[in-house]
Write a protein that binds this DNA or RNA. Structure first.
Length: 549
RNA sequence: GGCCCCAUCGUCUAGUCUGGUCCAGGACACGGCCCUUUCAAGGCUGUAACACGGGUUCGAAUCCCGUUGGGGUCACCA
């Protein structure tokens, strides 16, 4: 028994694709079979080696390792290889051509010389007449064909499709019959010599021994085509199972374009007609803004989002990784969209899924991707992590995405930061994103001007500034600079001068040393920064004009 | 528009095959209360759904038909 995941490598692995991979993987494990990864890169324009590698990394990060497929090694992980290599369709052209020749010889396929323009015109006419477009087979006499071939005229290969109804048997959706005439003579090989998706998929699934195909529901109608090819070639029929599609909360299809949509909306809100400096070129920006079909590259989109101060929706597995989600949480949550083990159980890991996954419990209805629930799962999982493991995971995350922290913080500081952050961080990214003040030079710190800040610092005496002035010598006099010592000093000061209301002192201190109203508990914050920086920042804060800020 | 698929709280879902134990269970979100030096986190608690209309049956969320709504697909993209 064998399953497979067969992505086309454009961009990054999207969460919908990740779920498909997950189910195929879990199903193979459950049945004691094998899981194949195959890269469907038959579209030369859209495929790239970089994207392929990204897909492999994303899958491996989730713990979805393939028994057969491209060879991959990273750290302690190594997987891939196999007898049916190569696993990149672009390297399997001779295989497809040999089979295509056979079909041609048997009269089950034929050459078609229509130009894209001609077909487009026919399609337009069909649309005008409000009827579905179906390709009309034209017979061409051998002499003419020989002449066209001799001229080197571009042509495609099409399948001779019998005019009969086709009944699809699907393990999750049941049976569906496509009436005769619904399917026309579709293309098997493109003019550039590459096979179409339909042909390559069927051939490879047969040759690689795939017995079960779990894929997105958008392929449901294609299944009839694939069955027709199998019949023409005399291939076996795998079991099909079509998975519902994952949607955005608003019901739109979750797609990579959502990033562009978010950015365009933001640009419109701001009334921008030129790109912010160092994001994208002016011409590129104008073209992108004018044409909703143009997508920015991920790097461009990221730069623009940073400049416009918006957060891009997480769509790809890599986005969630960057945002600080735990891979086991994503796996758990993805599985819950379209599958459930029953009995009100919803927290489980990959091993559990591999042990219990079944097609019978796959839902037919599409799910909307609820980031709030994903976040809630992430919070629970992070809180349940042993302290040491949280710190270790944060270290890995920081190394990958926040090198500035790793460079500036001593190991002791890093340890302190993460100890203070565990239990109050919802993602692995929050300790970094929320504590920029730690990697800012003392003299470069800027204070945010906002109502809560003014409220904490100004007002009737003794106000925040007064307390700052009062607590500074107390801190300066400390000989040991650690959390207990600071705690004693600050609470002692509050007891004598602020009616035991620690917050009256803590908040001004927090603002003075971090620039804002949010940071880890005040003793941790001060300990983290070190005595010199704290005193320096308080001194600067005392010179700041709080009234007019 | 043709063809195909789907339909339980706002969302993810349990329950549907094998009708009664369901005036529908869990989780997230939301509201309230508590805790609190900020932001979080945490504790307690509340509101909330069988799309609609017909059947079948002693009895329907569960079976049948229709309506409505949603989705997929109609490429030399996958």
């Amino acid at each position: 028994m064998k399953t497979r995941f067969a992505p086309s490598p454009s961009g990054h692995l999207h969460v919908g694709g990740a779920r498909t991979a997950l189910f195929n993987f879990a199903f193979a494990r459950r049945m004691g079979g094998r899981f194949i990864l195959r890269i469907e890169d038959t579209d030369q324009k859209r495929s790239s080696d970089a994207a392929s590698l990204g897909f492999l990394k994303d899958l491996a990060w989730l713990g979805i390792l393939w028994d057969e497929g491209p060879e991959f090694a990273e750290g302690a992980i190594a997987c891939g290889g196999g007898d049916a290599a190569p696993y990149f369709q672009s390297q399997r052209r001779e295989t497809y051509d040999a089979l295509l020749d056979r079909l041609l010889a048997e009269g089950k396929a034929y050459r078609a010389f229509d130009t894209p323009e001609e077909l487009e015109a026919q399609r337009r006419r069909a649309a005008e007449e409000k009827r579905a477009f179906r390709y009309q087979r034209t017979t061409i006499d051998p002499a003419t064909e020989a002449r066209l071939l001799a001229e080197g005229r571009p042509h495609v290969l099409r399948l001779v499709v019998p005019q009969e109804p086709v009944t699809i048997v699907d393990a999750v959706l049941g049976e569906a019959t496509i009436p005769a005439g619904e399917i026309d003579d579709f293309v098997l090989r493109k003019a550039d010599g590459f096979p179409t998706y339909h042909f390559a998929v069927v051939v490879d699934d047969e040759l690689m021994g795939v017995t079960h195909v779990l894929r997105a529901q958008e392929h449901f109608n294609n299944t009839a085509r694939h069955m027709l090819i199998q019949d023409a070639l005399g291939f076996r029929r795998p079991t099909y199972a079509h998975l519902s599609i994952i949607f955005n909360p608003d019901g739109s299809k979750m797609s990579k374009r959502d990033k562009d949509r978010t950015l365009r909306a933001r640009v419109r809100d701001l009334g921008l007609d030129a790109p912010p400096p160092a994001t994208v070129g002016a011409a590129r920006f104008a073209a992108w803004l004018a044409d909703a079909n143009i997508q920015l590259e991920l790097e461009e989109a990221t730069r623009l989002a940073a400049a416009l101060d918006v957060s891009l929706p997480e769509i790809n597995v890599d986005d969630f990784r960057r945002s600080g989600y735990l891979p086991e949480v994503l796996v758990n949550f993805l599985a819950l969209n379209g599958w459930s083990p029953g009995n009100d159980l919803e927290k489980f890991d990959l091993a559990f899924l591999c042990e219990h996954f079944s097609l019978e419990r796959v839902l037919r209805t599409p799910a909307k991707f609820d980031r709030a629930k994903l976040l809630a799962f992430n919070i629970d999982a992070i809180n349940a992590l042993p302290r040491g493991e949280f710190v270790e995971r944060a270290r890995l995350h920081g190394t990958a995405f926040h090198p500035e922290f790793m460079e500036r913080l001593t190991p002791a500081q890093f340890e302190l930061l993460m100890n203070a952050s565990h239990g109050r961080s919802r993602t692995l990214d929050e300790p970094f994103r929320g504590n920029r003040w730690l990697v800012t030079d003392d003299d470069a710190l800027r204070w945010e001007s906002s109502k809560p800040v003014r409220k904490a610092m100004t007002g009737a005496s003794p106000n925040g500034v007064d307390h700052l002035r009062g607590v500074r010598p107390v801190l300066e006099a400390l000989e040991t600079w650690d959390v207990p010592a600071i705690e004693t000093a600050v609470t002692g000061y509050a007891k004598d001068h602020a009616g035991e209301q620690v917050g009256k002192v803590a908040q001004p201190l927090r603002i003075a040393v971090t620039g804002g109203t949010v940071s880890p508990p005040i003793h941790d914050t001060l300990a983290l920064l070190g005595k010199t920086a704290v005193l320096r920042r308080i001194a600067r804060a005392l010179d700041h004009g709080w009234e007019q800020s």
